[in-house]
Write a protein that binds this DNA or RNA. Structure first.
Ligand SMILES: [Mn+2]
Length: 423
DNA sequence: GTTGCATGCAGAT
DNA sequence: TGCATGCAAC
């Protein structure tokens, strides 16, 4: 459910943009956003259990648009359920169940229109539906990766490692996870609203010297997040005020001072609240993700000294490397059943000609793949200006290059990757 | 002004 | 997977 009211809170730094500004770049997609919207196009059939692939076509409409702008899409899907999110998932299940019953009653009353509206609210995206979309994408040479846990953290990892220059989502949580550049509300034409991590201090109206990304994240968490409730009566505005008033950096001390900072007498911050807050913070910082290059599980950010994955089961219980890899490829469902036999190896044959100069256009599973890196200062890139569509498609193993295509010289390297440089 | 909660909604004909 | 909006209450 993200952070309630965060996007309106950030309206000052949300800028209209178009995905064509990222020609030649890689864009990672929060696939379940599209899947859920696409499922509305065929809600009756899905609810009735009939076969339909209308939701696949809905998503491919976006994919094809991205390809038409010479953009390399990476589809990112949600994986296993996160212990930290137990409450939220329970709420969602109850909501779907409520709507299922409501639909049945309305149908008995003969109110077909209302019944359909309720029915629409109880459909769920199954792993089989996600697999159908992955197959359709792979037929077009589009990379897919299933996160070990939340797609949120996986997308942030792709952003921070310079694999993806833009993240496409509808979920405000992605901002807290530390993505550099996010496009919200992108329509089928490619228009959307862009937000950049480097602008967050402006939204809080804090000077650079006093701003830290930690403060921003604490502000959001104080107003309530999927992993932890807010303090009663505290929303984004008051949380922002509190974070502006303190120069403290210790989370525990900040939390204890909240009633004083906001001058709220009958507000107590229990020890349980503080410990829950820290677990939630660790879930944002250290949730397990899958690194496609090393093909291993890794925390989104490096653990502090002395901390191990076993210490943070709530941020994703560790799983075996092979399990994580097969899950990432979409070959294994979250229960551990084998559901496909996709082998990324053959794709490395698409390593030809100009892809030596653009290894970031290869499949992320290709041994020769290299991330493109960060766009300097988070600006919308103007390079490469006219790299032909043929190069991208060719690199992705789709079409042949034109015989007399004019070639640009190799581009200067972009800013090297430096994880966490913005903190 | 800010929060809390209930309600409606996402596509396509 | 999520957001927007309206309105009552503090
Ligand atoms: Mn989320």
């Amino acid at each position: 459910m993200g952070i309630q009211g965060l996007l309106p809170f950030l309206k000052n730094i949300l800028t209209p943009s178009h995905i064509r500004n990222y020609r030649g770049c890689t864009v990672a997609i929060d696939a379940y956003c599209w899947l859920h919207k696409g499922a509305f196009a065929c809600a009756e059939k899905l609810a009735a259990g009939e076969k339909t692939d209308m939701y696949v076509y809905y998503c491919m409409k976006y994919i094809n648009m991205l390809l038409s702008y010479d953009i390399k899409p990476i589809l990112v899907l949600d994986g296993c359920h996160l212990p930290s999110k137990k409450n939220v998932e329970k709420k969602r299940r109850e909501r779907r169940e409520l709507n299922r019953k409501k639909a049945a009653q309305l149908l008995r009353d003969g109110k077909r229109k209302e019944a359909r509206d309720a029915l629409v609210q109880c459909i769920d995206i199954t792993p089989q539906m996600a697999l159908e979309l992955m197959n359709a994408c792979r037929d077009k040479g589009v990379d897919c990766i299933t996160a070990p846990y939340e797609a949120d953290a996986q997308l942030a990892y792709l952003s921070q490692t310079g694999i993806a220059q833009v993240i496409i989502t509808e979920d405000s949580d992605l901002i807290l996870f530390g993505c550099h550049t996010i496009m919200f509300k992108m329509d089928t034409s490619g228009a959307g609203m862009l937000i950049q991590n480097k602008d967050l201090n402006k939204a809080m109206k804090l000077q650079d010297a006093h701003y830290t990304f930690d403060k921003f994240r604490y502000m959001c968490m104080l107003s309530g997040c999927d992993y932890h409730a807010n303090l009663p009566g505290i929303g984004l505005s008051k949380a922002c005020k509190a974070m502006k008033l303190t120069r403290q950096i210790d989370v525990r001390l900040i939390l204890k001072k909240i009633p004083m900072l906001l001058n709220i007498r009958n507000l107590t911050v229990s020890a349980e609240y503080i410990e829950g807050f820290i677990r939630a913070d660790n879930t944002f910082l250290y949730q397990l993700v899958f690194d496609p290059l090393s093909r291993k599980l890794t925390p989104l950010n490096p653990y502090p000294p002395g901390v191990k994955a076993e210490d943070m089961h709530y941020a994703g219980p560790p799983m075996s490397p092979d399990h994580a890899f097969q899950l990432a490829l979409g070959n294994m469902d979250i229960q551990g059943n084998r559901i496909a036999n996709f082998d990324p190896a053959p794709r490395s044959q698409s390593w030809i000609n100009d892809t030596e100069k653009t290894p970031y256009l290869l499949s992320i599973w290709d041994p020769n793949y290299k991330p493109r890196g960060q766009v300097p200062e988070g600006e919308e890139p103007t390079r490469p200006s006219t790299k032909g569509k043929e190069v991208l498609l060719q690199a992705m193993g789709i079409s042949k290059p034109k015989a007399n295509e004019q070639r640009r010289k190799s581009e200067p390297p972009l800013k090297p990757i430096k994880k966490g440089w913005f903190r």
